[in-house]
């Protein structure tokens, strides 16, 4: 019974909490700009509306145009189930090597999304898909370096133990590196501008130009779950989660996720999107940050 309850609670955390994050980011941006901004719950309203709307499909698209978003959503959900929520709660599933599975499930989501984008034959969507898979190359390298850092710090290859103990001296580097990966993987400023309406300059938004109705709802919800996943990862990899009590850990996790989200909003308020030529440079910086974190962790653990 407890197992079922905790599973339901976890699902609720990932499924219900996730759409809150984009709302918070938008609210922060509005505050900084001195606007009222959309309500924090805007994405929930959007999802509910999209779920009831009719679908418009491109004449060129195959059934995989619908299957793609579904697979992407399921893959992100699968990845979230591997991420522990604090040391006491742990992850739904935990085994040696689950960290690699998490990374590759996110890659599966990328494959499904970009496949669906290529369905329409639109040059815009092709461009977005090309950018998405290209930037992911460097983001993937940074992620695996970050995960190696955590593995070296804890001597473990399982997320539940990798994220639990207090961190070493590399925390600042790791936080900076992972936060940059969060920004690129979730298509935020300075890599991508989720608010822009110019197709040529977008990555994620341009890939989903032709999606509508329930599949578009799945895409938006999946994207918000991915954002929450990265926020949870960043929080847990830099905070000494293992040293807190059960309730304390949950509160710390919530506050941490909130801080990361507000941080994304502040970055978006004060930075402009980079020119595409400079994006790989910043991404390489994030790879280097993670590699330096790894080297520092190596020295610290020796």
């Amino acid at each position: 019974m407890m197992i079922v309850l905790s599973f339901v609670a976890r699902l609720a955390w990932w499924l219900l909490l996730a759409p809150l994050l984009p709302g918070i980011i938008n609210k922060v941006k509005a505050w900084v700009a001195g606007r009222r901004g959309p309500p924090v719950l805007q994405l929930y309203y959007d999802l509910a509306r999209l779920w009831r709307k009719q679908v418009v499909m491109s004449t060129l698209a195959s059934p995989a145009f619908i299957v793609g978003p579904a697979v992407a959503w399921a893959a992100v959900l699968g990845a979230t189930l591997l991420v522990p929520l604090g040391p006491a709660a742990g992850a739904t599933l935990s085994f040696r090597g689950d960290v690699v599975l998490m990374l590759y499930l996110l890659a599966l989501a990328r494959f499904a999304t970009t496949w669906a984008a290529m369905e329409t034959g639109s040059a815009f969507e092709g461009m977005g898909a090309a950018r998405e898979v290209t930037y992911a190359v460097l983001a993937e390298a940074a992620m695996i370096a970050a995960m190696l850092t955590l593995a070296v710090q804890t001597g473990s290859v399982s997320l539940a133990t990798m994220l639990a103990p207090s961190v070493g001296t590399s925390a600042v580097l790791l936080a900076a590196g992972l936060f940059t990966v969060l920004l690129v993987e979730n298509c935020r400023v300075p890599f991508d501008d989720p608010a822009t309406h110019l197709e040529l300059t977008m990555i994620h938004e341009v890939m989903v130009l032709d999606h509508s109705g329930p599949p578009f709802a799945a895409i938006l919800h999946g994207a918000s779950m991915k954002l929450l996943l990265f926020a949870v990862l960043v929080t847990q990899s830099v905070l000494p989660m293992g040293t807190y009590s059960r309730t304390m850990a949950s509160i710390v996790l919530l506050v941490g996720v909130l801080i990361v989200t507000v941080g994304v909003g502040i970055v978006e308020s004060f930075m402009a999107r980079f020119a595409f030529r400079r994006v790989p440079l910043l991404l390489t910086t994030s790879v280097l940050l993670c590699v330096f974190a790894l080297l520092v962790a190596w020295q610290g653990a020796a």
Binding site: Q54, V55, S58, T59, I66, L77, P214
Partner: peptide
């Protein structure tokens, strides 16, 4: 799960209706 979600989404699309149009 991937198959089940795809099937559910497919059914939902059938339920709300689907029209085709040229790519944007």
């Amino acid at each position: 799960i991937g198959g089940a979600v795809a099937w559910m989404l497919w059914r939902r699309v059938r339920a709300v209706g689907c029209v085709t149009a040229p790519t944007w």
